[in-house]
């Protein structure tokens, strides 16, 4: 079973993914609205897994919903909350229900979320989860037992091109490639000249690379990310540009900047596509795509 996302990656087209976040509770209205907005515009929709370690409706449930609504889900799976039994079981379930894309993540610490006293698991790490998927695809579980009925996934991972120090991050990145990752969605990039340097290195590997684009919503938001989000560096220029926007028009400026960046990435064929994140403002993703002349 080859997923439509995998076909898009292999087609050589400029691939666009975005993401939606499940709600805290069972009111799925907003998530359904976001899926509705995105499902026919992007090649696949990531569904986050207890984003920032905040307990929410499960990513597996969100992925099923995307599938049922006719979209193409990328199931995000972190290693924070499930041991190897639970991770493998969820992969079996996902595959059986037609979910064939998965993004493997280590996961944030529970200390960053809203259940700070929870036990964190990390039985596997992201590269081991990738390897586990490839092993399940060969018909064996992690204990070496045969599976009755197989699975198939287009499996991906993330990288932080602006991590400091970078070298340990790249060693991990290469392990993810060796473990069988087919695509990479990067942490947000803003300095495209530096991203090009990263791509000069990354292009040697077989994985398709989608540059992470996070919508800037205000100058303070950009400064906040610089201060608090590991591996995100918004240069002064876009911060000044955001600050120069007329009152109440910062979002429009953010959309313009994101659109401009995506256009440049595409025009210069820097990488294989983009992953657009409009955290909390998913309804703006179509506007960003329009600004990038993708729709």
């Amino acid at each position: 079973m080859v997923s439509s996302f995998k076909k898009a990656l292999e087609s050589g087209k400029f691939v666009v993914t975005s993401e939606v976040a499940p709600p805290k509770g069972t009111n799925l209205e907003k998530m359904v609205h976001h899926i509705e907005l995105l499902k026919d515009k992007v090649d696949a929709i990531n569904i986050t897994d207890h984003q920032s370690s905040v307990m929410r409706f499960p990513s597996l449930g969100g992925a099923l919903l995307i599938k049922e609504m006719g979209g193409e889900p990328i199931l995000q799976m972190t290693c924070r909350d499930r041991n190897r039994l639970a991770l493998q079981a969820d992969l079996l379930f996902a595959s059986s229900r037609g979910i064939h894309n998965v993004l493997c993540l280590t996961g944030d610490s529970v200390l960053l979320g809203d259940h700070k006293e929870a036990k964190s698991v990390f039985d596997l790490d992201s590269s081991q989860l990738l390897a586990a998927i490839r092993r399940l695809e060969r018909g064996k579980d992690l204990a070496g037992n045969d599976l009755d009925g197989g699975i198939s996934f287009c499996a991906g991972a993330i990288v932080t091109p602006e991590a400091n120090p970078l070298e340990p991050q790249l060693i991990k990145f290469e392990k993810k490639i060796e473990a069988g990752t087919e695509f990479i969605q990067t942490q947000a990039v803003y300095d495209l000249d530096r991203f090009k340097q990263f791509m000069d290195y990354a292009r040697q590997f077989p994985a398709k690379i989608l540059a992470g684009i996070i919508l800037l919503t205000s100058a303070p938001m950009a400064r906040f990310m610089n201060k608090n989000v590991a591996g995100v560096n918004v240069p002064q220029e876009p911060i000044d540009e955001m600050a120069s926007a007329p009152k109440g028009r910062a979002i429009e400026k953010g959309i313009e900047i994101a659109g401009r960046m995506i256009m440049r990435i595409q025009e210069e064929r820097m990488c294989d596509g983009v992953h657009i994140m409009a955290i909390g403002r998913e309804e703006l993703v179509p506007d960003i795509m329009a600004a990038a002349r993708l729709v």
Partner: peptide, 20 residues
């Protein structure tokens, strides 16, 4: 390592310090 990872750092590593 806060997460006990054995294959290298997570994405939360920040200027040689831990995300927590």
């Amino acid at each position: 390592c806060h997460k006990g990872l054995v294959n290298g750092p997570c994405g939360g590593t920040n200027n040689g310090k831990c995300e927590i």
